[in-house]
C-alpha cells in the first residue's frame, strides 16, 4: 500500500513539472495571460505542491475522481471516459488470459513430460517462432489471411461475436508461448531434484510423478508473476486494439498523449501504475497461498 501511495504521488508530482501550456487545450495562442492565469488558478496549479497533492488524494479517495478531461472531451470526468473503454479491454483480455493459461500450461506440462520427443520439438518450434518473429508480422498475417481462410471479419464489430475470434487469437499467442516455455523449463528443473527420485522409488509412474509432484511445484515460481500478467492482459494491448479497431484502453492512452490531454494522461498513468503495484502485491499473496514455506506471519517453527 505504501508503495502504491508513493508511486502515485511521484507520478502526480512529475506531471506537475510539464510545461503549463498543455492545460489550455491547444488554444494558448489566442488567450491572454490573465485568462491563462485564471485557468491555472482554477485548476489549483498555483497552490503549493503539498496542497495540490493533498487535493489530488482527497478527490481520488473520497470521490473516486481523477479530474476532468481537457482536450478529448472537455469537461467530462476522466473516469467516465476510461470506464467504457476499459470494459472492452477487460473482456478481450480476460478471454485471452484463459486461453493463455489453459493452452500454455498444458502445452508446457506435456512438453516436459515427453521431453525430447516429437511434441516437445513441435512446441519448441512454436515458441521459437513466436519469439523470433515480430508480433506485427503474425498479427497482420492472422488479420489478412486467416480472416479470408476462415471467413471471419477483419475488424471488430461490437455486435458480431465472430469478429472477436481473431483479436483473441492474436492476444493469446504470445502468452501461450511464454506460459508453455516457463512451465516446461520449471518442470524440467524440478525433475532433476532429489524428491523426484524418491517419488519414483516409491513406485510412481513417470506420469504420476509429473502430475502429482512436478506440476504443482513448477507452478509456484510462476504464481508470483501471474497477477501482473493478468492485470496487464486485461488492461488492453495497444497494438491489437488498434489493428482490429477495438475501442479499448490501449487506444485511449495513445490519443491522450498525442493530443496532450494532461489530466487524461495523468489518470491513465495512475491507472497503469496502480495495476502494476496491485499485481505485485497479489503476486506475493499468491506465493504465500501456494508455498507453505512462506508466511507473512511467522509461526513458531517446531524443530
Amino acid at each position: 500500500m505504501i508503495t502504491m501511495f508513493l508511486v502515485l504521488s511521484i507520478v502526480f508530482m512529475l506531471m506537475r513539472l510539464l510545461p503549463v501550456d498543455t492545460y489550455f487545450g491547444g488554444r494558448s495562442d489566442s488567450m491572454s495571460d490573465t485568462v491563462k492565469d485564471n485557468i491555472l488558478k482554477q485548476l489549483g496549479l498555483f497552490d503549493p505542491w503539498y496542497v495540490q497533492l493533498g487535493n489530488f488524494w482527497k478527490n481520488l479517495l473520497f470521490h473516486g475522481d481523477l479530474g476532468e478531461s481537457i482536450v478529448i472531451q472537455q469537461g467530462v470526468k476522466c473516469v467516465d471516459l476510461i470506464i467504457p473503454k476499459a470494459k472492452w479491454s477487460f473482456q478481450f483480455g480476460a478471454i485471452a488470459m484463459v486461453f493463455q493459461m489453459l493452452i500454455g500450461y498444458s502445452m508446457g506440462v506435456l512438453m516436459a513430460r515427453w521431453k525430447g520427443k516429437f511434441f516437445d520439438s513441435l512446441g519448441n518450434l512454436y515458441i521459437l517462432l513466436i519469439n523470433a518473429l515480430p508480433a506485427a508480422v503474425y498479427f497482420l498475417f492472422i488479420q489478412l489471411y486467416l480472416s479470408k481462410v476462415l471467413h471471419l471479419p477483419m475488424f471488430f464489430e461490437p455486435y458480431n461475436t465472430a469478429s472477436r475470434i481473431l483479436p483473441i487469437i492474436c492476444l493469446s499467442l504470445g502468452g501461450i508461448a511464454s506460459n508453455a516455455m516457463w512451465m516446461r523449463r520449471y518442470m524440467v528443473d524440478q525433475m532433476n531434484l532429489d524428491y523426484i527420485r524418491l517419488a519414483r522409488a516409491k513406485g510412481m509412474t513417470s506420469s504420476q510423478v509429473a502430475f502429482r509432484h512436478v506440476m504443482r511445484n513448477a507452478f509456484i515460481p510462476m504464481a508470483q508473476s501471474l497477477p501482473t500478467t493478468l492485470l496487464f492482459t486485461i488492461s488492453g494491448s495497444l497494438y491489437v486494439e488498434s489493428l482490429f479497431s477495438i475501442p479499448g484502453m490501449g487506444g485511449l492512452l495513445i490519443t491522450s498523449i498525442q493530443r496532450q490531454d494532461n489530466t487524461m494522461v495523468q489518470a491513465m498513468v495512475l491507472l497503469y501504475s496502480a495495476i502494476s503495484v496491485v499485481g505485485l502485491l497479489l503476486g506475493d499473496i499468491m506465493m504465500m497461498v501456494c508455498d507453505p514455506r512462506i508466511s507473512l506471519v511467522k509461526k513458531g517453527g517446531s524443530r
Binding site: 524428491y195 524418491l198 517419488a199 522409488a201 516409491k202 513406485g203 509456484i220 507453505p292
Partner: peptide
C-alpha cells in the same frame, strides 16, 4: 512398478532434499 517401493525400497542420502517441500 510392483518391485519399487513394494518389494525393494530406498532411503536416500540427503533428507533435506528428498522430500517434496510443498
Amino acid at each position: 512398478l510392483h518391485i519399487r517401493g513394494k518389494k525393494i525400497a530406498m532411503v536416500f542420502q540427503d533428507p533435506m532434499t528428498s522430500l517434496n517441500p510443498l
